[in-house]
Amino acid sequence: MAAAAAAGAGPEMVRGQVFDVGPRYTNLSYIGEGAYGMVCSAYDNVNKVRVAIKKISPFEHQTYCQRTLREIKILLRFRHENIIGINDIIRAPTIEQMKDVYIVQDLMETDLYKLLKTQHLSNDHICYFLYQILRGLKYIHSANVLHRDLKPSNLLLNTTCDLKICDFGLARVADPDHDHTGFLTEYVATRWYRAPEIMLNSKGYTKSIDIWSVGCILAEMLSNRPIFPGKHYLDQLNHILGILGSPSQEDLNCIINLKARNYLLSLPHKNKVPWNRLFPNADSKALDLLDKMLTFNPHKRIEVEQALAHPYLEQYYDPSDEPIAEAPFKFDMELDDLPKEKLKELIFEETARFQPGYRS
């Protein structure tokens, strides 16, 4: 834990890192770190609560700039109880001085990944967590956004079992017609939660990839272990087919990539493993919904509104309290091709509203 900075004593240090967030945020305490930044909790002297502050230093890398800009653009436009918001952003007053960006968010005690390492969940908890994931996802999908990296560590939890989806750095506007060349190379989302079509096709992607990830998360809540822990690309596919069985001819016809289709045709026939054999203690309604989410063919996979209306979630289902976005989200430009200098300018502009004396 960093010592509390005395008023006016300059930035606090946390594990050798400068955290320049005073005077409003003090009493910093280390939480963890990701690929390009550290997260601390801090005391907000204005709202009198502890908050989470993520320090991001992305400006050396085009990919990190892209992810940072995506996350900020999306989260500043989203407003939903099951999606983490941005409360404040701290950065230098000029673009030349801006080396880091500090993002202030609600402090959540833990995440689903940490929880599943230590606790076996009751059916009631599984049901409530799944409902909140789908409630947040309904809003995301209504904005025409794909999260693309749903996994237990991106689901934040607090002691009252509130759940918030975080990390929109890989999110995209849904565009089933656009052929994202190089899709697989830039697709760094965790393999275990990846839909089979991501490994088999490169053309376009749809909201059904997020539903697949939610199915993987439900299976993990039922058993405290990942359902498809593939060691590499082909191993991942083999794990999936080992449980779902061989795809039907109709399902194979959806695979545009001939090499991928021929690979699947070359494999020995596998039978589907019954879900109640894998999860003998699970609620039968939970397994019915799991089956509809972990469907090989993305066109037959359940959609988020149908999933919310499934009998497993009937005690929570309330369409009048499951809000959607006001308007579909649009990125003005494809960020993939922009140089990091341009992305830095866009991050600077996007964060201006939090600067003292800002006038829109």
Rank of each mutant, 00 (worst) to 15 (best):
M38T: 11
V46M: 13
C65F: 15
I74S: 11
L222G: 10
R15A: 13
Q355W: 05
G242N: 08
I165W: 06
P196Y: 04
K203F: 05
Y139N: 14
D88Q: 01
L69A: 08
D210H: 07
Y139I: 07
S223Q: 10
D88F: 03
V49F: 13
T351Y: 01
Y317D: 04
D88K: 00
C40L: 08
Y64R: 15
F129V: 03
P328H: 13
F296T: 01
D20G: 01
Q17W: 01
D106I: 00
N297A: 04
L116E: 07
I198T: 00
R24Q: 11
A286D: 10
S266I: 11
L346N: 10
R172S: 03
L244K: 02
G85H: 09
I103H: 06
A9G: 12
I90W: 03
I95D: 04
M293A: 09
G37Q: 04
L290S: 07
L69S: 11
D235N: 13
L28E: 00
Y205S: 13
L278E: 11
S360Y: 14
E303C: 02
F78S: 13
L287Q: 15
L289W: 02
E96H: 00
H80Y: 12
A195H: 03
S208N: 09
P176L: 11
I165N: 15
V304C: 09
S29K: 04
K73E: 11
M199T: 00
H239I: 10
D162K: 02
N45E: 13
A6S: 12
L112T: 07
D251M: 06
L244Q: 13
G215I: 06
L75E: 14
L75V: 12
G22M: 09
F354C: 09
L200Q: 14
I89K: 02
R225Q: 05
N238Y: 14
S153M: 01
V14D: 15
L237K: 02
P229E: 04
T351H: 05
V188D: 14
S122D: 01
E350W: 00
P311V: 03
E334M: 01
I74L: 10
F329T: 01
F19I: 15
F348I: 14
I126R: 03
K340I: 06
L294D: 03
G215D: 06
L237N: 03
F78P: 02
I256F: 14
T185Y: 02
S57E: 11
L184Q: 14
D210T: 06
A352Y: 03
D337T: 06
D332W: 06
L121M: 14
F279D: 05
I56P: 15
A143T: 07
L184D: 11
V188L: 09
Y113C: 00
I165S: 00
V21C: 08
A42C: 10
C216F: 13
W275L: 15
N238F: 12
K259M: 14
K117A: 06
N82Y: 14
A260S: 14
G34R: 11
S246M: 07
R15C: 03
P152D: 03
Q105H: 13
L244Y: 01
G204C: 10
Y233E: 05
A42Y: 03
A52P: 07
E109T: 04
Q132G: 07
C40V: 08
M293C: 04
E71R: 03
Q306E: 05
T351R: 03
T26V: 07
R70P: 00
D100S: 11
L112N: 05
K272C: 07
E334H: 00
R353F: 07
A92D: 13
E109F: 08
E314V: 13
G215M: 06
G230S: 12
R261D: 03
L184F: 10
I95L: 12
A219Q: 08
G204K: 08
V214C: 10
T118L: 13
P152E: 09
D162Q: 00
Y139T: 07
A143Y: 11
P247H: 14
E341Y: 01
N123I: 14
N281F: 09
E350L: 06
D20S: 08
H61R: 11
I165M: 05
S153Y: 03
P152T: 13
H120F: 02
L157C: 03
D288N: 13
D20R: 05
G136F: 06
E96C: 02
I324N: 12
M221H: 04
K330T: 00
D175M: 08
E303K: 11
Q249N: 01
L69V: 14
C254V: 05
P319W: 10
N224V: 07
